[in-house]
Lab assay of single mutants.
Amino acid sequence: MIVFVRFNSSHGFPVEVDSDTSIFQLKEVVAKRQGVPADQLRVIFAGKELRNDWTVQNCDLDQQSIVHIVQRPWRKGQEMNATGGDDPRNAAGGCEREPQSLTRVDLSSSVLPGDSVGLAVILHTDSRKDSPPAGSPAGRSIYNSFYVYCKGPCQRVQPGKLRVQCSTCRQATLTLTQGPSCWDDVLIPNRMSGECQSPHCPGTSAEFFFKCGAHPTSDKETSVALHLIATNSRNITCITCTDVRSPVLVFQCNSRHVICLDCFHLYCVTRLNDRQFVHDPQLGYSLPCVAGCPNSLIKELHHFRILGEEQYNRYQQYGAEECVLQMGGVLCPRPGCGAGLLPEPDQRKVTCEGGNGLGCGFAFCRECKEAYHEGECSAVFEASGTTTQAYRVDERAAEQARWEAASKETIKKTTKPCPRCHVPVEKNGGCMHMKCPQPQCRLEWCWNCGCEWNRVCMGDHWFDV
C-alpha cells in the first residue's frame, strides 16, 4: 500500500509500505531520502505521535493516508518512550493509558441525555464484534464512529474520518494533550489543546475536521460531520418502519427517538411537499423529531443533505422563500418566477423588478396576487391545505425507538455506581478489583462488596467470576 509523507509540512511524497511495516522502518526510509538522522524524526498522525514499535496496521493507516513527519531533536526523557523501550505506560498493571487514536474515538455516547454525564468515556458498548469485510486488514473493525456528507465523488452519507490540525499553522502536526470525549470537544473551536510539532510553531489549540472515509482524499478535501447519525450498535428499532437498520439518525429530543435514513428521507420529502418545515429565527429551515417532541429541531442543517441534490435544492429554495415571508415580504405569483420581494408595508401595487435578471417585471396586487387592478379585489380565496398535519407515529413504536432507553438498560445490566462519587462504572470481565475512572475520584473498590478495596476482598473473592 501507499502512504503519503509530508516532511516538515512540505509537499508530500509517496512511500510504499506493508501492513506489518513498523513506524521506525518508515522513519528509516524517510531519513534516507531526506539525509537526516532517523532518531530525530517524529511521525504524527490523527493528533498522535506514533511509536517506533507500532506497525502501519496498528495505527489504522489506510491506503493513501497522509502522515506528517517532522525533524525535531529529542528532548530529555522522550527518546526512550518513542523507541518502544522502557515506557512506564506499558508496564503490566499500570494505570496510565495511551491517548486514544482519533481513528478509534467514539462519540456516540454523547447523544445520551444530559443526566448521563461521564458515560462518553466510561461506558463502552460490546456491539462492535462484526466481522471485518472481505479485503480489510485482519482485526480491523467495521464499526463506524462518525458519518459525514461527502460532496465529492460519493454525493451521499458516508463513514467519516476525524482529523485534527494546529489552529495556528493549519498543519496536521499537532499532538493532542488528551483525546475528545464528546461532540462539544470536536465542534467547539479551541476547546481542546495540544502541542504543535512543526518547527518554530508555538500553536497549542486544536482544530478538528472530518474527511470522507470511503475514498482517498487530499489535504484540502473536508466534509461536514453529521453528528446525529450513528451506527445502530444498540439495535434500536426505527420509529417509523420498526426495522432494525444501521446507520440511524438520533433526534435530540428527551427520548432520543431513532429513525433509519430511508424513513428520514421520506419524512423530509413529505414535509417538504406540504411546505411544513419549521422556520426558526436562529436555526433556519428545519424539522423536529418525527414524533413531534418539543425542543427537538435539527440544529445542523447539513443533515438535510440526505435528501439528495434535487430535493436539497428545493429545500434551500423553500427556506429562502419562507425567510422572505417571515420578513413581511411577498413572492411573485407569476408561474416560473417566484422571486422574493420586500415592498413597503402599505404598498398595494407590487412590481417584480426586472433588474439584474432576477425579476420578471410582472405587476400584481398584494392582496389577491392577481395582475394589478384598481378598486376592490374580486375574490380572495383562503389558501387550502395549509394546516399542519401531524406525522403519524405509532405510540408503541415510539416507545421502542428510544436510544436513551437502550442506554439505561445497558447501564443497569453492566454497571454499578462507584461507592464514593456514584458514577456508573462498567465491568466487562476481569477481577473484582475496580478503579473509578473519574479523575477527581480514582477510588479503588470491590465490585462484589461495593466497598473500598481491602485485604478481605483480596483474599476471599479477588478473582471470582
Rank of each mutant, 00 (worst) to 15 (best):
K129V: 11
D274Y: 03
D87P: 11
R89T: 14
T168Q: 08
C418N: 01
D346K: 09
E376Q: 14
L301P: 09
I306C: 06
D346E: 11
W403V: 03
A82K: 13
I66T: 13
N454W: 01
G340T: 06
C268Y: 02
V393K: 05
V111F: 11
G450F: 04
R42G: 05
S116G: 13
H265R: 04
D18P: 08
M80Y: 12
L341E: 04
G328K: 06
Q311G: 05
F210I: 05
P159Y: 07
T237Y: 05
R334Q: 14
G375W: 05
D460W: 02
Q438N: 04
E195P: 05
L272W: 00
E444D: 15
A138Q: 13
V157A: 07
W183V: 02
P159R: 09
D53P: 04
C360R: 03
S22F: 04
N144F: 06
D86T: 12
E16C: 07
Q440L: 11
M434E: 04
E195W: 08
D280V: 13
T83E: 14
A91F: 11
L331P: 03
R156P: 04
S136Y: 10
R271A: 14
A134C: 09
E452C: 15
E321K: 05
G139D: 14
C451A: 15
T240I: 15
Q34W: 12
F364H: 05
Q326K: 14
F210S: 00
V278M: 10
A339N: 14
V425T: 14
G459Q: 15
T387V: 12
N356R: 11
K151R: 14
A379P: 08
C451N: 15
C95G: 13
E399R: 14
Q311K: 03
S384G: 07
P14Q: 04
A46E: 13
A214L: 07
Q282G: 05
Q438T: 04
F364C: 03
K151H: 14
D219A: 10
V244R: 07
L341A: 09
W74C: 13
S101I: 08
G203V: 02
V117Y: 12
D86A: 11
T21C: 08
E452H: 15
S167G: 11
S22A: 06
G47V: 00
S378T: 11
S131H: 09
Q100D: 13
V248F: 01
V250F: 02
G355V: 11
Q311P: 04
K161V: 14
R275Q: 02
L174N: 02
V423H: 14
I66N: 03
R392T: 10
E221P: 06
I229G: 00
C337P: 03
K129E: 13
F463N: 01
G118V: 03
S131P: 11
E28I: 02
V244G: 02
D274K: 03
E382F: 13
S9N: 08
G152I: 06
P281M: 07
S101W: 07
H215Y: 00
S65A: 12
D346N: 11
A225L: 08
G139Q: 12
D262Y: 04
L358S: 15
V186S: 01
S10G: 04
H302C: 10
D460G: 04
S223K: 03
T168Y: 08
V465P: 15
G213E: 07
